[in-house]
C-alpha cells in the first residue's frame, strides 16, 4: 500500500538554509545540498525547498542551488517560493526540480495552475495554501501569510484541484512556528474535501505530532523543518515511531 511521506523542508535564503522563530531572527542552519543529501540518507521520502526571499536578485542563486542539490539527490525535489509564471516553473524544472509549488501567484491568477498542469503534467504542480482561522472558517493568506484574501481555504483547495493541481501543500498560519502540533481541523477539512494528496505543514515540534496528523486526518504527507534541522530527531526515528504505531512508512 501507499506509504505516508515524511518531507523535510528547507527554507532557503541567499543560498543558505535558515530557520526563524516566528519569522524573526533568521539564522543559518546549513548548506542546502549537504542537508538534503543527509536527509535522503536518513530516509526522507522527498525534499522541499522554499525560497523565502524570492526576489529577482536571488532567483539565479536559487536555481544554482536547486541544480546542485538535484545533483546529489535520488529522491524527488519540490521547489517553491516566488513562482509567478509558467516560465518560472519551467526554469525550476530545468534546474532539476521534480515538482514546483505556486502560492500567491495562483491566487492572483488561477489560470497559472492549469497552464502549468497542461505544460508539464499535473503531477509536478503543487499548490501551496496558507490558511488561517477567521471566525468560523479558514481564510487563504498570501505573501508569506501577510495578506488576507477573503477566500475560503477549503473552497480554494477544491478549486485548484479542478484547475489541475496535483497536490496541495497546506500550511496553517495559526500553528506554523509554534511547534505545538499540526492544525488537525484544517488539515482534516481540506483532505476530506479534495481528491488529490494533501501535505500537512506548520507546527511540527516532535514525532508525536506527525503521528497525530496521520492518525487523525487524511493527509498523505507531513512536512517538517526544525525538528530535523536541530537534530531533535532523525527522519529514521520518526519512521520507526510511526511504524510501531501502525502507520505504513517506507
Amino acid at each position: 500500500m501507499l506509504t505516508k511521506r515524511i518531507i523535510p523542508c528547507l527554507d532557503v535564503k541567499n543560498g543558505k538554509v535558515v530557520k526563524g522563530i516566528n519569522f524573526k531572527g533568521l539564522r543559518d542552519v546549513g548548506y542546502p545540498p549537504e542537508m538534503a543529501a543527509n536527509y535522503e540518507m536518513q530516509g526522507a521520502d522527498e525534499i522541499t525547498f522554499l525560497d523565502i526571499t524570492a526576489s529577482l536578485e536571488t532567483r539565479q542563486t536559487m536555481l544554482d542551488i536547486v541544480s546542485e542539490t538535484a545533483g546529489k539527490l535520488f529522491v524527488p525535489l519540490t521547489v517553491g517560493g516566488g513562482i509567478r509564471s509558467v516560465d518560472d516553473m519551467r526554469d525550476a524544472l530545468n534546474a532539476g526540480a521534480d515538482k514546483v509549488s505556486v502560492n500567491s501567484a495562483a491566487v492572483k491568477n488561477p489560470q497559472i495552475v492549469s497552464e502549468c498542469a497542461e505544460s508539464f503534467g499535473r503531477q509536478c504542480v503543487v499548490v501551496a495554501i496558507d490558511g488561517k482561522r477567521v471566525d468560523d472558517h479558514w481564510e487563504v493568506f498570501t505573501h508569506g501569510g501577510t495578506r488576507s484574501t477573503g477566500i475560503d481555504a477549503v473552497e480554494w483547495a477544491k478549486k485548484v484541484e479542478d484547475l489541475g493541481a496535483g497536490e496541495i501543500l497546506l500550511t496553517s498560519m495559526d500553528t506554523d512556528g509554534v511547534k505545538n502540533g499540526y492544525d488537525i481541523p484544517l488539515t482534516a477539512a481540506v483532505a476530506d474535501e479534495v481528491n488529490i494528496p494533501v501535505i500537512a505543514s506548520g507546527g511540527c515540534g516532535c514525532k508525536e505530532h506527525i503521528y497525530d496528523v496521520f492518525s487523525q486526518t487524511g493527509a498523505s504527507a507531513a512536512l517538517a523543518a526544525s525538528i530535523f534541522h536541530y537534530n531533535e530527531c532523525t527522519v529514521g526515528e520518526v519512521k520507526e515511531y510511526l511504524r510501531d504505531r501502525g502507520i505504513v512508512v517506507r
Binding site: 511521506r5 521520502d45 496535483g166 494528496p197 498523505s220
Partner: peptide, 11 residues
Amino acid sequence: GKVIPHMGWNQ
C-alpha cells in the same frame, strides 16, 4: 481511486 494522482512510495 479516492486520491489521484497516486503519489509517493509504494511496493
